[in-house]
Design a protein around this nucleic acid. Sequence first.
RNA 1: GCCGCUAUCGUCUAGGGGUCAGGACACGUGGUUCUCAGCCACGGGACCGGGGUUCGAAUCCCCGUAGCGGUACCA
Length: 500
Amino acid sequence: MRVRFAPSPTGQLHVGNARTALFNWLLAHGKEGAFILRIEDTDAERSTLASELSILDDLRWLGLDWDEGPDVEGPHGPYRQSERLHLYASYANELIASEHAYYCFCSPQKLVADRQAAMASGRPPRYDGSCRDLDRDQTQRRMEAGERPVVRFRIPPGLDVTFTDLVRGDVTFNSEVIGDPVLVRSDGRPAYNFAVVVDDALMGITHVIRGEDHISNTPRQVLLYQALGFTPPQFAHLSLVMGPDHTPLSKRHGATSVAEFRERGYLPEALVNYLALLGWSPGGDEELLPVEELSSRFALEDVGHSAGVFDQDKLAWMNRHYMKAATPGRLAAEAVRYFLKAGFITQRTDEAMEYLASLLPMSVGSVDRMEEIPDRVRFIFAFDAAEALARPEVAAVLGEPGARDVIAALAQEIAGPLLDKEAFRAVATRVRERTGHKGKALFHPIRAALTGETAGPELDLAVPAIDRGAALPAAARVVRVMGCQERVRAFAREMGARPT
RNA sequence: GCCGCUAUCGUCUAGGGGUCAGGACACGUGGUUCUCAGCCACGGGACCGGGGUUCGAAUCCCCGUAGCGGUACCA
């Protein structure tokens, strides 16, 4: 089995295309087939090398490695269509010689006019065949006169073309609705339908798994395989990915490219797991499956037929799951960029990374993506008593019964750094004994004074995290963290300046 | 317009001539907790419409309808 993914390098890798790549990869991986990457860059105006590089990068990030492709090469290369032009030219000549194809001199203007006329009268819009029967001399003369013809494929009339789609079953098109497609453009570059057939045949592709938008191209490709003397591969067409409003997933629905999801802090295994289940079901009740499990269970027969809506909420849920499953060290490596961006860390030193790793378990269960983590622990790095008290919800805590007493007592009881849960508990106990307040009346004011917030991670974790941060040397390159003792004193001072 | 594909909770889906139509996300309620989030429990929620075949249709067939795709010298 040989499958392929053949993107056009005209932008970033869209999640819909990533899913197509993934389904191909899962199939090959589960059946020990080969996964080939081919770059379809015959559209010179829109193709860029930067886009090719970013697509390769995104594929690698997702873990979809390929056996043959533009960077690794292989026995069927080159793997960029722009480097295979001689092959298309040679097969085009062969088709012209066998009269499966012919030169066409019709102007674009005529084609547009014909198409409009056909639509207006309710007929299928297709090429009218004006140049089908030009004789060799005429063709020769016009080419010598400087006209640049296209090469068209001769579609046999009145023929039902049926192919078996591995997802949908038999699909039939009548050749009457298919106009003679352009194989080679007037500038000599091959058109998609031609290049794809030549390449898939020459590269020995056995299963073409692609988006449903190609299903109506398939009959002309099947005919082309036959004319060229190649055996057509098996086809499977995947339904498309939609936005919540059931229109094709696009920018206005939010993130659509793999690069964007990566930037926002989704883990690749979360995106892979989510995408695998969009349009395919492994059958059982479990949905959180490692990639090896996905590939061993994947089968085209179990792929759904209908378009699927991309559900950001479910992706977020899976991402939470994989963030919780990841080790702190891995998470720190993945999330450090967001801390650098927030300015909480200024350099990736070993101490900074270690400190980060210690912070992540308390914050990771409550965010959807890694980019949200710094905000969840912002209280550690950006404490300011005056600012905190200026906020209504924090000021309101002071109005709770006994809150001022608790804070005053806390200011006296904290004698040094609270480096672990036990140290914090001991202080909290002494404050409780001194003030007689417990539960919410005790912890709510403590939270306000120590974090400057009214909500956040549990204090057992948050408080030691603050003082461990405060104990970090300047060389750790973590922004200065104010310790708990200093915090509560500052808070009490500000509180004193605000009478009840 | 023409051709093609598709149709089960809001979403992703399982199932498939007789089922209490199952699960997950989301949502609601309760519990846990100093708080938010999380976590746990419980709950509401679906077979596009109409015909036909059949003892029986969500399931098979036909016709509609709707959505999507194609209808290029884009891919």
